[in-house]
Amino acid sequence: MPFLTINPFHRKARTSQNKNISAWFIALSAIFSTSVFADTITPYRAEYEVSRKGSVQGSALRELTKSADNTYILTYQSDIEWMIFSDERNERAKFKISNNQAIPLEYAMSRTGTGPDKQYNLVFDQNKKQIFSSKKKHPLKVDWKADQKDLLTYQFQLRQDLKAGKTSFSYPIIDKNGNQRNYDFEVDGKETITLPIGNVETIRVKRLYDNNKRQATAWFAPEYDYLLVKMYKGKEGIEQFQVQLKQYDK
């Protein structure tokens, strides 16, 4: 490594070379703070079954892809039928990576089925530091936060933060009504669970609510690159639905 050789008899050369080495390490650090994090992101396709009280009522699909402009697209689709109730949802988030953070650019959601149909879009203008909604003529009247997330991007960030070894998480969210609030989570332990794909070692994460009326728990599997492999939602102790991984492809 000749660029590290320092001549002890020439102080000026040593000083100049030390500066070059320092600059090299600073540049290297900057590279690792962005591109290496992005390089660890693996596109995938994951299929799930959605059940209620042990009976399968539908299916869901979660997919992550990388675009040619170095942005990422995370989509989630679900199709559920239970008795006379039906619900079909499609969510799509576009984001980029900067300083180990997922930066939201666009979010879209549509829902059809029993009851009124719903559809809305959000655009995060990172230059103007404003958020636009398809439901409003003007930018949303919310404080701009650098770590602001949408309803899909925070799920991606939680997974990445879990991979980094974090045990508690808090994300400012813009919800479907354009309201700003925090979603808080904490690691609740490790657990081996049985899924349609077999037994899996997981890290269990619980969402923290202001009261005990609602429950939400998610299980992430390190052997599947910390993918979400199971999710449970309940209200007042009664199961609303459960999602379990049945197929995973990179």
Rank of each mutant, 00 (worst) to 15 (best):
Ile31Gln: 06
Glu106Lys: 04
Met109His: 12
Thr112Leu: 06
Gly115Gln: 05
Lys128Gln: 13
Lys96Arg: 11
Ser29Lys: 13
Lys96Gly: 13
Asn18Lys: 10
Pro43Asn: 07
Asn100Pro: 02
Ser16Pro: 02
Phe95Trp: 06
Glu106Ala: 09
Phe132Tyr: 14
His138Ala: 14
Thr65Trp: 04
Tyr120Arg: 11
Tyr72Arg: 04
Asp143Arg: 05
Thr112Tyr: 05
Lys135Ala: 15
Ser86Met: 06
His138Gln: 15
Leu28Glu: 12
Trp144Asp: 04
Gln126Tyr: 08
Leu122Ala: 10
Ser110Met: 09
Gln119Asp: 11
Ile21Asn: 04
Pro43Lys: 08
Ile131Glu: 02
Leu140Ala: 02
Phe37Met: 12
Asp147Phe: 00
Phe32Lys: 12
Thr112Val: 15
Asp79Gln: 03
Ser133Pro: 03
Lys136Cys: 06
Lys135Asn: 15
Thr40His: 15
Asn20Trp: 06
Lys129Gln: 15
Thr75Trp: 00
Thr40Arg: 15
Asp147Ser: 02
Leu105Arg: 08
Arg11Glu: 12
Thr75Val: 12
Glu81Pro: 00
Tyr107Lys: 03
Gln130Met: 06
Tyr44Ile: 01
Ile97Phe: 05
Arg14Glu: 14
Thr42Ile: 15
Thr40Tyr: 10
Trp82Asp: 11
Ala23Gly: 10
Gln57Asp: 07
Lys19Asp: 12
Pro139Gly: 01
Glu81Met: 04
Thr114Leu: 08
Leu28His: 10
Tyr120Gln: 10
Glu88Ser: 14
Asp150Val: 08
Pro8Phe: 01
Arg111Glu: 12
Arg111Val: 04
Ser98Val: 09
Pro43Tyr: 08
Lys149Thr: 12
Lys118Ala: 08
Val142Gln: 01
Lys96Ser: 14
Arg52Leu: 07
Arg62Phe: 00
Ile80Pro: 00
Trp144Arg: 01
Asp87Met: 05
Ile21Gln: 04
Pro139Tyr: 07
Ser29Cys: 09
Gln148Arg: 07
Val36Asn: 11
Ile6Val: 03
Leu140Cys: 02
Lys53Arg: 10
Ala60Asp: 01
Val123Thr: 14
Gly113Tyr: 00
Ser59Leu: 10
Gln148Val: 08
Ala23Met: 07
Gln119Arg: 09
Asp39Val: 10
Tyr76Thr: 03
Arg92Glu: 15
Ser133His: 01
Pro116Ser: 10
Lys118Pro: 00
Gln17Cys: 03
Leu28Arg: 13
Lys94Pro: 04
Asn7Leu: 04
Ser98Lys: 12
Leu64Trp: 01
Lys19Met: 08
Lys66Gly: 05
Ile6Lys: 00
Thr34Glu: 14
Asn121His: 13
Ile26Trp: 07
Lys94Leu: 13
Ala108Met: 09
Thr65Met: 08
Glu106Asn: 14
Gln17Met: 07
Ser33Val: 09
Glu91Pro: 02
Leu61Gly: 02
Glu47Asp: 15
